[in-house]
């Protein structure tokens, strides 16, 4: 059985960069992403003994699950009382404008805005599937949703993005 240090080492060296970008795509702000990544690594370390899965895919899904929860936790702190997490899109779009690289491609920015307009559930599924190229089985392990509903989420996410891009003449 691996020690907590070994598991943290593997998680950070193998999945670290992907976890950062996964969190960043969800929270948009770099500072928030850094905080969430830090918390993710602390959780991985402290809960390493409770990780019963095999290495590889299971460890990857477990790390992604923790990272997703931490990212959503950051977003929950941003929404006001009685507001839905899905209502945070416009605020994140403002972050996007502020944090984009100078001279960033306009279509790339528009694409990200389209993603930020999705519901949180669709956004998580779309990012994991499109950018991280995870299988629906892995995404199901991360989100706790059935593969069928994830396929539906992804389908509607793609449709919504296409519609947004069409409306904005791209």
């Amino acid at each position: 059985m691996k020690s907590a240090n070994d598991i943290l080492q593997q998680a950070s060296s193998v999945y670290g960069k992907r976890l950062y970008w996964h969190i960043r795509r969800l929270v948009v702000s770099h500072d928030d992403a850094e905080d969430a990544l830090q918390e993710t690594f602390i959780k991985i370390f402290t809960k390493a003994q409770s990780f019963k899965g095999e290495e590889g895919a299971a460890l990857e899904a477990w790390c992604y699950k923790i990272a997703t929860n931490e990212a959503l936790q950051v977003l929950r702190k941003r929404v006001h009382a009685f507001q839905s997490l899905d209502s945070i899109g416009p605020e994140l779009a403002d972050f996007l404008a502020a944090e984009a690289a100078p001279g960033a491609d306009k279509s790339a920015l528009l694409f990200q805005k389209a993603i930020l307009g999705l519901s949180t559930q669709q956004r998580v599924v779309f990012n994991l599937r499109y950018y991280d190229e995870l299988s629906y089985t892995q995404i199901a392990a991360i989100t706790g949703k059935s593969e069928g509903s994830l396929r539906t989420n992804y389908h509607y996410a793609v449709e919504n993005i296409k519609e947004y891009l069409k409306e904005h003449a791209l």
Partner: peptide, 12 residues
Amino acid sequence: EFENIVTDLPYK
């Protein structure tokens, strides 16, 4: 999907 669009992240 989106092969004809720049989908890279625009961060620095």
